[in-house]
Design a protein around this nucleic acid. Structure first.
Length: 472
RNA sequence: GACCCUAUCGUCUAGCGGUUAGGACACCGCCCUUUCACGGCGGUUGCACGGGUUCGAGUCCCGUUAGGGUCGCCA
C-alpha cells in the first residue's frame, strides 16, 4: 500500500477498480491505424481515448496495424505510428514491438499486422461462402448484407437505426474480397476484432454508418458484435474538416515544434470529453480516474491551437530542470543555434532567466537567441524609438558605471542602473529599454539585470558600445 | 441523390424543466512590474431559427437551416 502522496501507477488504479467492481469480462480495446506515413491528430485522440478507457477499467489496450494495402506500406510508416504513440506516452499491452511485420510482438492474439493474418481471413471467408452468406461475383467475394435496417447500440450516440441509402437499395451486398484475392477493410476489421476478443470498439464517428455492415458481418460469423462508441471528429478551427494537408493535422508537427507531450495529451482529453468539474489542466492519472464513455460529447470539436499553446505554457512552467534543458537545447539546435560552443553552466544559467516566459519551445530561439550569438541584430522599429540622441548620453553614463562595477551580478547591476537613473532624474525604464535593445536586439526578453550578468561584463560592454556607435 | 450524427460566448465546455446561463482559452481595461511573461481584479461576448408540450424550455417533441460523416474491388 503506497503511502499518501506517493503516486500510484495507472495499472494499480485500474486493478483496484476491477477488484472493486468485480468485473467478469476484461475489457479489450484496440487502436487500429493504417500506416500511411503519418499519424493524424484525430487518430492520436482515438488512440488516447482507447488507452484511457483501458486504463480506467483495468482492461487491455491493443495496437493493431491495418497494413492490408501493401502498396503504401513500409516499416518507416509503421514506425511513425509507434513513435507517435510512444511520444504521447500511450503504451500498448498487446501489439508490435517494432515496425517489422514479421518481427516480435507482445500478446497472445497475434500477429498484430493484418498483412500476417491472411490465412485467418481466408478461413472466415470460406466459412461464409459455405454457409451461403457470401458469394462470388466477377472474381470478387460479396457479402449478403441484411436488407432490413440495423440498430446500432452506441455508447456515445445512443441507438442509431441505420437504413439503406438509395444506392445500397439498388445493391445492398458489398465486396469483402477483391478480385485480386485481397480482403477489404470491413472484413478484416471485423475478423480481427472478433479473433482478438475486442469488447469495445472506440473509433471516429466517420465509421458510424459503416457499423451496420460490421454488425451484420459479426452475426454472419456467428458472434455477438462488440460494444461500439463512436467519438466525434476533430475539425479545423474554422469548422472545416481536417485533411492531411492542414497544418496541425499531423502529430509530427507537435513533436517537431517543441510541444510538451503531456500538454498535448491534456488538451486532447478535453476535446469531446469533459470532467464536468471545470478542471482544465489535470494530471493524466486524474483523467484516467474520471474517464468514461457515456460522458463523451456527441458533437464535433474544433482544434484551438491557442488554447493548446496556453496549456503548453502551463506545462513548461512545471517542467523539471533537466527536461527543460533537454527540450530547450533541442529547440535551439533546430533553429541552427550552436549551444555546444558554450559551457553547460552558461547555457543553464541563460535558460534559467527564460523560465516561465514562453509557451512554446519554438519561441525560445527568438527569445533567448541573443545569448548564443556573437553579433545580434537590432529590431529596427525599437531602434528608431530607443536609440535616440537624447538617450545616448544616458546610456554612456550607465555604461561607465557598469564598467566600474564589481562584482558584475544581477543585484548590483540593478542597483547601479537605478542609481544612475536617479542621478539623471529619469525613470529606470528610460535606461532599461535602450540597454535591453543593445544587448538582446529585442524589446522583450529576460530580466535585464540577470541577462547582463550572464552575458558577462565584457560582452555586455561590447554590445552597448556597438549600439552606441549606431546612435548619431 | 439517399442514409446517419450534431447544434450553449469567437473556441473548448458546465447545464440533464424553475440558474442573475457557470468555468477555461482568446480579447479589452486596471493593478503588480526593469521589458515580456506570470499573477491579481474587473469587463465585452452565447442558448441557430420556427412551431409545439408544460404553470414554466438552453434543457422534452417536430420541422427548418447550418455543419460534419457515410453510401468504393480505400482504410
Amino acid at each position: 500500500m503506497p503511502s499518501p502522496g506517493v503516486p500510484i501507477s495507472y495499472r494499480e488504479v485500474a486493478v483496484r477498480r476491477v477488484l472493486g467492481q468485480t468485473r467478469l469480462v476484461k475489457i479489450r480495446v484496440r487502436f487500429a491505424p493504417s500506416p500511411t506515413g503519418f499519424l493524424h491528430i484525430g487518430g492520436a485522440r482515438t488512440a488516447l481515448f482507447n488507452w484511457l478507457y483501458a486504463r480506467h477499467t483495468g482492461g487491455t489496450f491493443i495496437l493493431r496495424i491495418e497494413d492490408t494495402d501493401a502498396a503504401r506500406n513500409s516499416q518507416e510508416a509503421v514506425n511513425v505510428i509507434l513513435n507517435g504513440l510512444r511520444w504521447l506516452g500511450l503504451d500498448w499491452d498487446e501489439g508490435p514491438m517494432s515496425g517489422d511485420p514479421a518481427g516480435p510482438s507482445k500478446g497472445d492474439c497475434g500477429p498484430y499486422f493484418q498483412s500476417q493474418r491472411q490465412d485467418n481471413y481466408r478461413r472466415r471467408v470460406e466459412g461464409l461462402l459455405s454457409k451461403g452468406l457470401a458469394y462470388e461475383q466477377e472474381g470478387a467475394v460479396k457479402f449478403k448484407m441484411d436488407r432490413a435496417p440495423i440498430v446500432i447500440p452506441d455508447l456515445v450516440v445512443g441507438d442509431v437505426r441505420r437504413e439503406l441509402t438509395d444506392r445500397e437499395q439498388v445493391e445492398p451486398d458489398f465486396v469483402i474480397v477483391r478480385s485480386d484475392g485481397q480482403p477489404v477493410f470491413h472484413l478484416v476489421n471485423v475478423v480481427d476484432d472478433l479473433e482478438m476478443g475486442i469488447t469495445h470498439v472506440i473509433r471516429g464517428e466517420d465509421h458510424l454508418s459503416n457499423t451496420a455492415k460490421h454488425i451484420a458481418l459479426f452475426r454472419a460469423l456467428g458472434a455477438e458484435p462488440p460494444r461500439y462508441a463512436h467519438i466525434p471528429l476533430i475539425l479545423n478551427i474554422d469548422g472545416t474538416k481536417m485533411s492531411k494537408r492542414d497544418k496541425g493535422a499531423s502529430l509530427s508537427t507537435y513533436m517537431d515544434e517543441g510541444y510538451v507531450p503531456a500538454a498535448l495529451v491534456n488538451y486532447l482529453c478535453l476535446l469531446g470529453w469533459s470532467p464536468k468539474n471545470n478542471r482544465e489542466k489535470m494530471p493524466l492519472a486524474e483523467v484516467v480516474e474520471a474517464f468514461d464513455l457515456p460522458q463523451i460529447l456527441r458533437h464535433n470539436a474544433r482544434f484551438d491551437l491557442t488554447k493548446l499553446i496556453w496549456l503548453n505554457g502551463e506545462y513548461i512552467r512545471e517542467l523539471g530542470d533537466d527536461r527543460c534543458y533537454e527540450l530547450s537545447t533541442a529547440a535551439l539546435a533546430r533553429a541552427g543555434l550552436d549551444v555546444g560552443k558554450y559551457s553547460t553552466d552558461y547555457v543553464k544559467a541563460a535558460l534559467e532567466t527564460c523560465k516561465g516566459k514562453f509557451k512554446l519551445f519554438g519561441e525560445l530561439p527568438a527569445y533567448a537567441g541573443f545569448y548564443f550569438k556573437d553579433e545580434i541584430e537590432f529590431d529596427p522599429e525599437a531602434a528608431q524609438k530607443d536609440f535616440t540622441a537624447e538617450n545616448k548620453p544616458r546610456v554612456v553614463k550607465l555604461r561607465e558605471a557598469l564598467a566600474r562595477l564589481e562584482p558584475f551580478e544581477a543585484d548590483p547591476i540593478g542597483a547601479t542602473l537605478k542609481a544612475v537613473a536617479q542621478e539623471l532624474g529619469v525613470k529606470a525604464g528610460v535606461l532599461v529599454h535602450p540597454t535591453r535593445l543593445a544587448c538582446c536586439g529585442n524589446t522583450a526578453g529576460p530580466s535585464l539585470y540577470h541577462l547582463l550578468a550572464i552575458l558577462g561584463k565584457e560582452r555586455a560592454m561590447q554590445r552597448i558600445d556597438r549600439a552606441l556607435a549606431q546612435i548619431p
